[in-house]
């Protein structure tokens, strides 16, 4: 662990709502496209995929993790490929590179789980990216709370 710095400053006397709005305008992550824009027909629940993975070591899906390295390094869905955080330009570029190795008809399952579903900054940009690349069989794992609570804690396969 590295200490960055320890500073003592005081909050500006600004109403919280205005402060948060200003913060959001300056921070793209708070203005990120919401996961709720993904069509419900494209969503799959962890229980569905978890059960399939428990029965079979190989799924027909290419599973792409579009979250952060610090999460992927700790644990990820067995067989998943790291494809970068799609909320960031580098992450989106990595997703394009990873996906371009597959035919457009490849069944792809996207997941992130870094944050509660409605706050996830990565999943909607990743979905949009694959749509723009004309992939025809993309599904998204709907992780309500986070990967630890909704996947790992349920005992679904991880690596």
């Amino acid at each position: 662990m590295h200490t960055l710095h320890s500073r003592r400053t005081f909050l500006l006397q600004t109403p919280v709502s205005l402060g948060m709005l200003a913060l959001a305008l300056r921070n793209p992550h708070l203005m990120a496209e919401s996961a709720t824009t993904i069509p419900p027909s494209a969503l799959l629940e962890p229980a569905t995929i978890g059960a399939q993975l428990e029965k079979s070591s190989q799924l027909h899906w290419k599973i792409l993790q579009v979250g952060f390295h610090s999460m992927f390094d700790q644990k990820h869905i067995r067989g998943a490929i790291y494809a970068g955080p799609a909320s960031q330009p580098d992450g989106l570029a990595l997703l394009r590179r990873v996906a371009s190795a597959f035919p457009q008809s490849t069944p792809i399952l996207l997941y992130c789980g870094c944050c509660p579903w409605t706050h996830c900054p990565n999943i909607a940009p990743a979905w949009d990216q694959l749509q723009s690349m004309h992939f025809t069989a993309v599904k998204v794992l709907r992780i309500e709370n986070n990967f630890g609570a909704d996947w790992v804690a349920n005992g679904y396969p991880v690596a």
Binding site: M1, H2, T3, L4, H5, S6, S70, M71, D73, Q74, K75, G113, C114, C115, P116, N145, N146, F147, G148, A149, V152
Partner: peptide, 18 residues
Amino acid sequence: PILMSDPQLSLLYGGILG
């Protein structure tokens, strides 16, 4: 103070997976 995490630290706290 803000510290930078690493995989070992996350594991010490049971895994930070969200």
